[in-house]
């Protein structure tokens, strides 16, 4: 599947980016529709919080798929949508946190909520890590940070693992769905390990691999 003329054209790339944006916003549209139609059930706050969290995890995983896709297909379009997918993941994560505070916690006992419950601590790590990544996602910041940008953005691996832990910790008795996501994440991290070794997985350390701006995903 090497790039052909059509696939290389600017219009194709633009269409691809637009479609990806639409797909990334589908979970939100679906939720808004269900909310408006009163289809969230008798405990809508819980439903909303869960759905937003799941969308954030899915988009984070999708973001980490882009670099392997680019390497596999040799087409640069995949990494061109990586930042947008990552920002969408952060956007869903923000809504998820707000929804959790508003509907599940009611803004009460915040200190206890965030210090005594391990699954929430894991979720907080996943979320907090996304903040610096989002703030440094612009072209200008990429240029300014140089090689440090890549080191910093390996924090995405920490985020996705913490998000998965946060997710699994809430399983009450059936972990089939969680295992599927876990397997996906494991495969995506395994790619990084194969390309760059352990240092390619650890954030904030220098990588010993050849410089390649597409290596980090």
């Amino acid at each position: 599947m090497r790039s052909t003329g059509l696939v290389r054209s600017r219009r194709f790339l633009l269409g691809f980016r637009l479609s990806a944006a639409l797909v990334a916003l589908l979970p939100l549209a679906w939720l808004v529709w269900r909310m408006a139609a009163g289809l969230l059930g008798p405990d809508p706050g819980q439903e909303l919080t869960q759905a937003l969290g799941l969308a954030a995890l899915q988009l984070l995983i999708a973001t980490l798929c882009m670099t392997p896709m680019q390497r596999w297909t040799g087409w640069v379009g995949w990494v061109r949508i990586r930042r947008m997918l990552g920002l969408c993941a952060f956007f869903y994560a923000c809504l998820h946190v707000l929804s959790f505070l508003q509907f599940m916690v009611g803004w009460q006992d915040l200190w206890a909520t965030f210090t005594t419950r391990p699954y929430i601590i894991a979720g907080s790590v996943a979320f907090l890590v996304l903040i610096p990544l989002s703030l440094t996602s612009t072209r200008g910041m990429m240029r300014r940070l140089g090689p440090n940008w890549k080191r910093l953005h390996r924090l995405a691996y920490l985020s996705v693992v913490a998000a998965w832990v946060h997710f699994v910790w809430q399983a009450r008795s059936d972990i089939g769905e969680m295992l599927v996501y876990g397997l996906l994440i494991a495969v995506l991290l395994w790619f990084r390990w194969r390309w760059n070794g352990w240092r390619g997985l650890l954030p904030l350390t220098a990588s010993n691999s050849r410089a390649n701006s597409d290596r980090v995903g």
């Binding site: 909310m35 008798p42 006992d109």
Partner: peptide, 21 residues
Amino acid sequence: HPRWSQKRERRLPSGLLSPNW
């Protein structure tokens, strides 16, 4: 409960605009 506070409950049906604590 280790994963959630038991001080309050959501009496169902609860709404988004009028959470029924």
